[in-house]
Amino acid sequence: MGYPFIQHIQQLLQSDLPGEKAHRKMLPPGRKLSANFNEMSEVKYSSVLLLLFPHEGRIYTCLTRRNPNMKNHPGQISFPGGRIEEGESPELTAMREAQEEVGISPLDIRLLGMLSQLFIPVSGYTIFPYVGWVDHKPNFVLNEAEAEKLILLPVQEFLQEERIAHTEMDTIRGRLRVPYYPYEGEIIWGATAMILAEFFEILKEGSLTLQ
Rank of each mutant, 00 (worst) to 15 (best):
N69V: 12
V122H: 11
L112F: 02
S78K: 10
P80W: 13
L52K: 08
N36K: 13
L50P: 01
P121Y: 03
P129V: 08
S41F: 12
T64A: 04
A94G: 08
I104T: 05
P106N: 11
H23V: 00
G124W: 03
G87N: 13
E100T: 02
H55I: 04
F79I: 07
H73W: 10
L107P: 03
I104V: 15
N139G: 11
F128Q: 02
A98C: 15
G81K: 05
P129Y: 04
L153D: 04
L112I: 08
F140V: 02
D135K: 13
S105M: 11
N72L: 14
E100H: 10
E100Y: 09
L33K: 11
Y60D: 01
P54S: 06
L112N: 01
S123E: 12
N38F: 07
Q99H: 07
G87Q: 12
P106C: 13
M95Y: 05
I84S: 04
W133K: 03
P80I: 08
R24G: 00
E146Q: 14
L63G: 02
L115P: 00
L142Q: 01
M114L: 09
P54W: 03
I127T: 15
I151E: 09
M95A: 14
N139K: 12
K25D: 00
V102N: 02
E91D: 12
V43L: 15
E157R: 04
A35I: 13
I59Y: 05
I120M: 09
F79G: 02
D108S: 13
G132N: 04
N72F: 14
D108K: 09
S89H: 14
P138V: 11
F119K: 11
K25A: 04
N67S: 10
E101A: 01
E146W: 09
L118E: 06
R58S: 05
Y45V: 07
H55K: 06
V102G: 06
K149Y: 07
M40R: 08
E101M: 06
F53S: 05
E39I: 06
Y125R: 15
